[in-house]
Design a protein around this nucleic acid. Sequence first.
RNA 1: GGAGCGUUGGUCAAGGGGUUAAGACACCUCCCUUUCACGGAGGAAUCACGGGUUCGAUUCCCGUACGCUCUACCA
Length: 519
Amino acid sequence: MTSTNRKVRTRFAPSPTGGLHLGGVRTVLFNYLFTRQHNGQFILRIEDTDRTRFVEGAEAYIYETLAWCGLNPDESPAIGGPFGPYRQSERKAIYGRYAEQLIRDGYAYYAFDTPEELEAMRTQYKTAENPSPRYDSTLRGKMHNSLTLSSEETKKLLDAGTAYVIRLKVPENETLRFTDMIRGEVVFNSSETDDKVLLKADGMPTYHLAVVVDDHLMEITHSFRGEEWLPSAPVHILLWKYLFGLENMVTWAHLPLILKPDGNGKLSKRDGDRLGFPVFAMNWTDPRTGDFTKGYRELGFLPEAFVNMLAVLGWNDGTEQELFSMEELLQKFSVEKIHKKGAKFNYEKALWFNKEWIKKLSADQLKPQVIYWLKNAGIDISGKEDQLPGIIEQVKDRCTLLSDFVEQTSFFFQAPEKLDLDAVLKKWNDQKNSFFIELIRGYELATDFTPENLEHSFKELAAASQLKPGELMLPLRIMLVGGKFGPHVFDIAAAIGAKATISRIKYALSLLENHSKDA
RNA sequence: GGAGCGUUGGUCAAGGGGUUAAGACACCUCCCUUUCACGGAGGAAUCACGGGUUCGAUUCCCGUACGCUCUACCA
């Protein structure tokens, strides 16, 4: 009946008020997957009708986030399209016309109540049973509007330039229903919704008017939005009915919320700050306050992992599979399998996804990212680029975040800055010291510096010195790597070469000697 | 207060009238590993509660409880 024969068109309609929240990106993802599966078009529309909340740079941030995630729109303010403009602030006149039309048709009215009057109404009618009185059919007769005023009075006020809003005249006791793609049929009674403001005093529309008008004008067929919008669906249903016909209404899908890990409730940026994980996709600095908020990208997440993690937060294909590439998501995603229940966000699991994706990607695929992180950390890899894929291959199973590549690979390029001497000091003695002096001699003479040869001569010397190799390997590791981590120690020695190996051993020996003296 | 939505292990979840109720994260034990990881083996749930329907309900229906969202000239 509705849009089955129309070309699928969806939209993501964020407000440019700050960084993009996890939930926002997931909404984009589901939009995108659904749209691509139906060979439709995905539109980015900027809902900047609230001038007071507009934040410079937020729109650019949105483009960058979508690009990073590989979720680019087909139409947007930046790239244009046949249904522009795509910024609601630039469509102001359009909404005004529809609001006036609603008034002419008797579905809306002018309201002149000042904020103070509204406040007075709320306190006056507030009772224990009704803590938040609404501007609705029961009360509008008592307020200052074109329904209670004579048409002459109304005209006079309008002509005098009196500030006004246009409110929807919500009918009494009307059953309003629609079929949600995720929840099935949802029913409301119109008496439960108030006379929502459609057009604000500054002439800008509220979300309710703008979303319906634009969805119609932009020929949107399916609308994915967060569950927090469900209670305002009756307003939108009414608007569709009065303006464009219920038969043309978009098909809605109200997505479950992403909840905070502890306790309950919507996940907010503050929860991330409090619990120590990002909620925004990328770093964000509020230009007004200077407040800085960390993002997933800069923390060292791969976009593949970020998208994957979001996809399975509230969706699952019914199998055991958890790791999905974008191609697989495009193939397997289905709205029917989106959950109804909100999911508590689990950062540990998000890290796990990143770790899995680092393991999953090849060294070549990881290489540009690793180079970026190493350069950022001031590590000079010049002359060793060719070795990088091999090095990445050796350490990638040990990395959870891309940033971990710095610690896990830096010792291949430069001597460790700090040595975990405590790890060796406890069991250090002259015998071991002599062993390493001998080892240096041996390695200086070594012609074939392969891991196998190095290990072989190391063990031979250990046996000759009557020492257990196990007690010597950790010291060697500390000397070369700086700490108790990393790939096999002889692989590292071979990779950095004889010269570096020997100088690092010598340097460590000198430190150990000083410590022994001190003690 | 009201309305709407929801309720399978600590978390994410599969499943769905008859099952030993999958799997993953985290946690614990062990194996592998002369580091750290990877990997491997194992450990824990009568599916919120109460009624129905049924030969049989975690699965269907109705209540209850609990939770969430909304209740702005914000989206």
